[in-house]
């Protein structure tokens, strides 16, 4: 936004983001431990396990959502795509375990294709991401509604349910799954060429274009991945709930964005780490679990949610770093007498 040199100093991008993620994990642990105070049954390993399992869906959808946000977009079709994924898995895979082999990839392919449609709309038709994905969400929801005639029919899959019920060394299988995802996701972002180019596109699309990066393809890919990750979350939900409903995705739209934003990703694109989003998901899930346990109304939970997002936005502003940097740079700690208005120093046309 501002055309001046930023005095964020020589902060190395990576360590800052990792720090941020670790802080979120720490906060989550503290919150879980602290909840013992509310009820003696809380604060133990079993509660931590329950929270990890519960947060797995947000962890999964937040992966795609974050990639989209990193390129400066937003995916508002996630709730409907997740529902569609779940309904399809419930209907077509059913109780058959061999069907998982083709069923799960099939669902992921289909939801990825929906993501691709989002990508085409945003990248080639230049529809604002927020409009495109909102409209796509309604379309997909309508299609799911029509497809099921209002009530999804099918059978729960025992193997999918086993992800949540069976454990290995006392830890439910799904927790291994999201741990692996957290590591792979972070590696994809920081360790691969795709990830590096993705950040470049998110930081400065114009420069990325001039530098010869395939800006459209990369942006498109983020929507495809977002569709697939929402589909995967829907499939997992079927395992957890043992069924599918037409509203199963609804309560994950805002958390998917909130986890990403609270996890330290700039909504303007270009900066953030998946590990942070995972931390954000854990923290928010813990938060709502604890709050729910003290019997607070859903309204208050929503209000607090909104305020948390707002605080995260306020705290993550680049200007704040600039300001802190200036305080550190000036021994007197006196802020500059005047700052030019952003409106004026911003680039022209």
């Amino acid at each position: 936004m501002s055309g001046q040199d930023r005095r964020a100093g020589g902060r190395r991008g990576i360590s800052g983001d990792v720090w941020n993620a670790l802080a979120l994990f720490g906060l989550t642990a503290l919150l879980i431990l602290g909840s013992r105070w509310i009820s003696p049954g809380f604060g133990g390993w079993s509660q931590a396990k329950a929270i990890l399992v519960l947060s797995s869906f947000v962890v999964v959808v937040a992966f795609g959502q974050q990639l989209v946000i990193l390129t400066g977009g937003l995916d508002l079709s996630i709730a409907s795509v997740m529902t569609m994924g779940g309904v399809l898995a419930f209907t077509f895979i059913g109780a058959s375990s061999p069907a998982l082999l083709w069923g799960v990839p099939g669902v992921l392919l289909l939801t990825a294709a929906i993501g691709a449609l989002n990508g085409i709309g945003v990248v080639w038709l230049r529809v604002p991401p927020f409009i495109m994905t909102l409209a796509m969400g309604i379309i997909v929801y309508g299609a799911t509604l029509g497809l099921t005639g209002g009530t999804p029919r099918g059978q729960p899959s025992p193997l999918l349910s086993a992800l949540f019920t069976a454990d290995l060394a006392g830890v439910p299988l799904v927790i291994y799954l999201i741990s692996v995802l957290a590591v792979l996701g972070t590696l994809l972002q920081r360790g691969t060429g795709f990830g590096r180019r993705l950040y470049a596109v998110g930081t400065n699309p114009a420069a990325a274009h001039i530098a010869g990066l395939p800006v459209r393809r990369i942006t498109m890919m983020t929507y495809v991945i977002s569709g697939a990750s929402a589909g995967l979350a829907g499939v997992l939900m079927v395992g957890y709930a043992g069924g599918a409903t037409l509203t199963m995705g609804q309560s994950y739209q805002l958390p998917s964005i909130a986890a990403v934003v609270v996890g330290g990703t700039s909504i303007l694109g270009g900066s953030g780490l998946y590990l942070g989003a995972v931390g954000g998901a854990l923290l928010l899930t813990t938060f709502s679990t604890v709050i729910a346990s003290i019997g607070i109304a859903e309204g208050w939970r929503t209000v607090i949610y909104g305020i948390v997002i707002l605080l995260a936005l306020l705290l993550l502003r680049e200007e704040l770093y600039v300001w802190v940097g200036r305080l550190a740079a000036r021994p007197g700690g006196i802020p500059p007498r005047s700052t030019p208005s952003t409106a004026m120093t911003g680039g022209n046309k």
Binding site: R6, R12, G13, L187, G191, T192, G193, R196, R197, Y199, A200, T203, N204, A206, A207, A208, I210, A211, G212, L213, G270, S271, G347
Partner: peptide, 28 residues
Amino acid sequence: TEGIFLGMTTASNISLPILGRLLRLGLI
């Protein structure tokens, strides 16, 4: 606006064109 990537490190800015040949087992 069209040259550099302000949010990234100097190294990441410079290495963009050669990322392809820095890969080992798919990772940079």
